[in-house]
Design a protein around this nucleic acid. Structure first.
Length: 802
DNA sequence: AGCACGCCGACT
DNA sequence: GTCGGCGTGCTC
């Protein structure tokens, strides 16, 4: 078994296979599957994952593994298998799949350097760049004006060699410790020898006579009121030593978490948790859909189920959507399970993420709470997987591997024979349909734990406002209610559903709209920099003073960004104190939390924001929620737009009156009779489900069919269409009769970064060979992909049709 | 992907 | 002869 099969870090379809390497003697006892290694690959050295060991290889002339990077495997056998499954399922490369399961810092970086191999002088120019050094970073050569030919000659003559390096991104955090470094009697001797004047030194020596344990140097110096210089003297006299130890960064170290005890469950909660507990006890897999209205106490069910799992010595994964991974959320879990919880969150630095990952890897915790990628936590004894807010679109990864965390969760749940819990107030139609069919177990919680009614929702028809001469974005009713709330010193949350609208720039004279020169999309106006920006390719230009078409100076920005709304709000109600939350004000680390704290401390009356304020926030003083444009999402080219609208309205309504004070919701819309708005206002999920299912059936959309989306992009529009056309034809020829193949259709954003994008959609019910078929078809374009900069991407079960 | 190799054409 | 620009094929 002295040969290792390795998946190598080269993301190309022709390399998507294992390569065999000999295991040198010195690694034979230590090398296991799942470890990262450095291997020679052509002239280079690159990283790879060992996926297996064997005694024989069909390949002649194996090379040796150069280096082993891990002491224990970073991928467990289960994760190796999961990675392979994931790659096959999403039509991704094995290496891409493996990398997605690990923290970013475990990715390797590659460098080249030139080494001078001769004592003699190189050519004049080469000597100039080497500048007396023997080793030259390759970029310095590239940055110089010297011809590659010259270097080639020097390499050929053996005067210069190229060194290929694999660098690690890992940075570890260290603290300096101090301890006594001589036997007790010597310390006591030294203490007596010290002059009476050396007060600090005596104190320190006295401390170490009392205390033989090492202590953290920084804390020690603070407590002793001393500095390095004093320590240095004792160090030189060999009485104490300092040394560094590695510590794991702990992002929540300085936060105190009040510990909580299990709450008494309501009858409904009890009914929901009982079958889950049974499955945990029996070590059986099953999927539960917990359909619970906001405030029905889903989290408490999660917490108590996890407690069972911990008691069995097993582990738990809890997924929460990125934006609701707030300190509030973390507090609930850390409050119950203390330091037994790791948190995986995109706001952590890459070093912090790595350290949280290692706490899992080293089995120092039993619970991980995290966003999508936490589903790959390297636990080996999983007892439960929970996906909160199951309907959230952020569980679908939008780049390779395009996986849905729910599918991965169920796959892992089957492997570990443990239950998977999906929780939501507004489940996806897919999940609810499966629960209806009995594929998932349904648990309904339709009562709030505090027995409070859901806040009353008033729908305001904005067309009537216009007719009545109100041209602002605030209906008279909303304005009145805001003022009343403010008088009562209560707080208000205003949601601007920005998607679909943004501040674009248009000329009032000729109607010209400023578009991105590289994408088919209007540029967005950013007030604080006075710039126009493209949200897809990061193109920027200053806001023009005159229209580039007709030179009119009546060029203005339109649409309703949060900035605009804030302005007109303060115009309308000057005394209102407003906190605005959107991507611009929350970009900085910790800004999100800071703004929410301000609001919680009642430093503002109104919290105005985008989607991000719709979820998970819980402020007791909020009694009014206003949705400014409920229908802005409805008109997007997306078959899920009604579902998303319903979900958003239901969620944001849940923000009002969560505690003692009764809540009220005002929904402004131009389409008041749309069923998603009407039914959300009366909290009728079941009716919505029926209506929407009928819709999906009529138009042949999930959950009645599965989707696969192939997108082709190329600089040349005709080329993009032609290739898509070919793909469509090949698909049509090989799929079953019930399967529909659509296209070529321009992608909703038909041009992005100077590339035209066309797509082909497959709608199918049962097509077991579809993945293999698409794979085969794409392979036929491999040559063009390489040579002509053609791009073909496949998304199995797309969430966004962009 | 990223690299070497080899062929070709342009330039001195 | 000298130099640089692609196209091609390979990587255990």
């Amino acid at each position: 078994m002295n040969i290792a099969s390795v998946i190598v870090d080269v993301p190309a379809s022709s390399i998507n296979q294992t390569f065999d390497y000999k295991i040198p003697e010195r690694f034979q006892d230590v090398l296991e599957s799942g470890m990262r290694v450095i291997v020679p690959f052509g002239p280079r050295k690159i990283m790879g994952f060992v996926v297996g060991r064997k005694a024989k290889s069909a390949f002649k002339g194996l090379k040796n593994i150069t280096e082993v990077l891990d002491i224990t495997p970073v991928l467990t056998p289960e994760l190796l298998g999961l990675g392979k499954w994931l790659a096959d399922e999403t039509l991704s490369l094995y290496i891409t799949s493996f990398q997605a399961m690990l923290p970013q810092v475990l990715k390797s970086q590659y460098k080249k350097e030139l080494v001078k191999m001769t004592e003699a002088d190189l050519s004049h120019e080469l000597e100039m760049v080497f500048a007396g050094r023997d080793i030259l970073p390759y970029e310095e050569f590239t940055g110089s004006e010297i011809s590659y030919y010259q270097l080639q000659k020097a390499i050929h003559d053996g005067d210069v060699a190229v060194n290929y390096l694999v660098k690690s991104k890992i940075t570890k955090k260290h603290v300096t410790m101090i301890k006594s470094s001589c036997p007790m009697h010597l310390l006591e001797e030294a203490y007596n020898d010290l002059s009476k004047k050396a007060k600090k030194q005596r104190e320190i020596v006295a401390f170490f006579i009392e205390n033989s344990e090492p202590v953290e140097l920084q804390k020690f110096m603070n407590e002793m009121q001393t500095t390095r210089s004093t320590i240095k003297i004792l160090q030189d006299r060999k009485l104490v030593t300092t040394y560094k130890v590695e510590v794991l960064r702990n992002p929540y170290n300085d936060t105190k978490f009040e510990s909580t005890i299990p709450l008494r469950l309501t009858d409904q909660q009890q009914q929901a948790i009982t079958p889950i507990k049974q499955k945990i006890a029996a070590n059986e897999h099953d999927v539960f859909l917990v359909h619970g209205v906001t405030g029905s106490g889903k989290t408490e069910i999660y917490l108590q189920a996890i407690q069972d799992v911990i008691n069995k010595g097993k582990e738990a994964i809890v997924l929460v959507p990125e934006i609701s991974l707030t300190p509030q959320m973390v507090r609930r879990f850390k409050g119950r399970f203390g330091s037994n919880v790791a948190v995986m969150h995109s706001a952590l630095s890459s070093g912090e993420k790595y350290d949280e990952w290692r706490r899992i890897h080293r089995k120092e915790v039993q619970v991980v709470v995290g966003a999508r990628s936490a589903i790959f936590a390297p636990f080996e004894n999983l007892g439960i997987i929970i996906i909160d807010e199951e309907h959230e679109t952020s569980y679908k990864q939008e780049d390779q591997p395009r996986y849905h965390a729910r599918d991965v969760a169920i796959h892992r749940g089957e492997h570990h024979h443990c239950p998977v819990i999906l929780g939501s107030a507004t489940p996806t139609l897919e999940s609810y349909a499966r629960a209806q069919k009995g594929v998932y177990q349904l648990a309904a919680l339709d009562k709030r734990t505090n027995e409070k009614a859901m806040p009353k929702v008033e729908i305001v028809d904005m067309r009537n406002e216009l007719h009545a001469g109100n041209r602002t974005m605030f209906s008279r009713s909303l304005k009145d209610k805001i003022e009343q709330s403010m008088e009562r010193k209560e707080q208000i949350v205003l949601l601007l559903n920005r998607r679909g609208y943004s501040t674009f720039v248009m000329c009032r004279d000729c109607g010209h709209v400023k578009e991105c020169p590289h994408c088919d999309i209007a540029l967005t106006y950013h007030k604080n920099s006075n710039q126009l920006k493209c949200h897809y390719c990061s193109y920027e230009e200053p806001m023009p003073l005159n229209c580039p078409e007709c030179n009119s100076d009546l060029i203005r920005y339109f649409g309703t960004g949060t900035q605009r709304v804030e302005e007109s709000l303060t115009q309308l109600i000057p005394e209102a104190r407003v906190i605005r939350m959107d991507v611009d004000t929350t970009r900085r680390k910790g800004a999100h939390e800071k703004l929410l704290n301000q609001f919680a401390n009642k430093e503002a009356d109104i919290l105005l924001g985008t989607q991000m304020i719709a979820k998970g926030l819980d402020f007791e003083n909020v009694t009014l929620v206003g949705v400014l444009t409920a229908d802005s999402m409805l008109h997007l080219p997306d078959f899920r737009s009604s579902e998303k609208t319903f979900q958003l309205l239901t969620q944001v309504s849940g923000r009002a009156g969560r505690h003692e004070l009764p809540g009220e919701v005002i929904v402004q819309t131009y389409t008041p009779d749309h069923y998603s708005i009407e039914l959300a206002s009366v909290y009728d999920y079941n009716q919505f489900y029926l209506r929407e299912m009928a819709m999906r059936k009529t138009f042949n959309y999930p959950p009645y069919v599965f989707l696969a989306l192939v997108t082709v992009s190329h600089q040349n529009q005709i080329k993009a269409v032609q290739i898509t056309q070919k793909i469509v034809r090949m698909l049509v020829n090989h799929v079953g009769e019930d399967t529909v193949v659509l296209g070529p259709t321009p992608s909703p954003i038909a041009r992005m970064k100077d590339r035209y994008r066309y797509q082909c959609m497959v709608k199918y019910k049962n097509e077991p060979k579809l993945r293999a078929l698409i794979k085969k078809i794409i392979q036929q374009f491999d040559d063009e992909v390489r040579k002509e900069d053609l791009l073909i991407t496949v998304d199995m079960q797309p969430y966004q049709l962009m």
